[in-house]
Amino acid sequence: MWRDAALVAGKDLRVEARSRVGVNQVVPFALLVLVVFAFALDSDRDTLSAVGPGLFWVTVMFSGLLAIQRSFVIESDDDARDALRLSGLDGAGIFLGKAGAVAAQLAVLEVVLALGVVVLYDVHLHGPVMLLLTCLAATVGVAAAGTVYGIIAAGLRVRDTLLPLLVLPVLAPVLLAAARACEAALAGTPADGWPWVRLLFVFATIYVTFGVVAFGPLLEEA
C-alpha cells in the first residue's frame, strides 16, 4: 500500500511539475480570487484583515476543487477509472498517493496565499504553531474528502458540476473550523482555537480512514 501510494504520488507530482498547470493557472487563479474579494468587499483594510482568514480558506477550497479535478483528468481523461484499475495498484495506495499529491500542492498554494493575505489584506501572522497545525489538518481533510468524491465524479459527463455539489457541503465544517482557528491564532487567543484544531484533526482522520476503505470499491465499480 505505501509503496503504491509513493509511486502514485510521485507520478502525480511529476505530471504537475511538467505540465505547470498548477503554477500557471491555479496559483494565479487563487491570487485573483483574493483580489476580487477585495473589490467586492471594501478596500478598507480593517474589513479585509478581519475577514482575511475566511477568505483565505474559501480560496483554498476552490483551488482544492481544481486540484482534485486535475488529479483525475490527468488519468487519460475519460478512461481514468480503467487506467487506474489496469495498473494493478492497490486501491488504498492509489487513494493515499492521490490525496497526498493534492495535499502537497495545496500546501504550496497555501504558502503563496498566506503571503498574499499578508500583503494585500494587511494581516499580521501570530500563533505560528496553531496556524501550522490548522493548515496541516485542514489540508489533509480537504485532500482526503475531495479525493473520495473525485473518483466518484471521475469520467462522468457531469463531473465538473457534480464534484463541487458533493464536496462543498462536506467541507463546510472544515471551512468553518479552519477559519475560526486561524482567527483565534491571529487574534492571540489560542484558547478559542484549540477545539477547532481538534475538530479538523477528527475530520481529517475520519475521511482518510474512509478513503482508505472506500476507494478500492469506488474504483472497482465496473
Binding site: I74, E75, S76, D82, L86, G88, D90
Partner: peptide, 20 residues
C-alpha cells in the same frame, strides 16, 4: 488486483500520461 498485476491490456485507449 492480483489478476491485473500480471496482465497487460493494449486497448483502443493508450492510457499514457501526456505530460510525462
Amino acid at each position: 488486483r492480483a489478476v491485473r498485476r500480471c496482465i497487460g491490456l493494449l486497448g483502443h485507449a493508450t492510457f499514457l500520461y501526456d505530460d510525462l
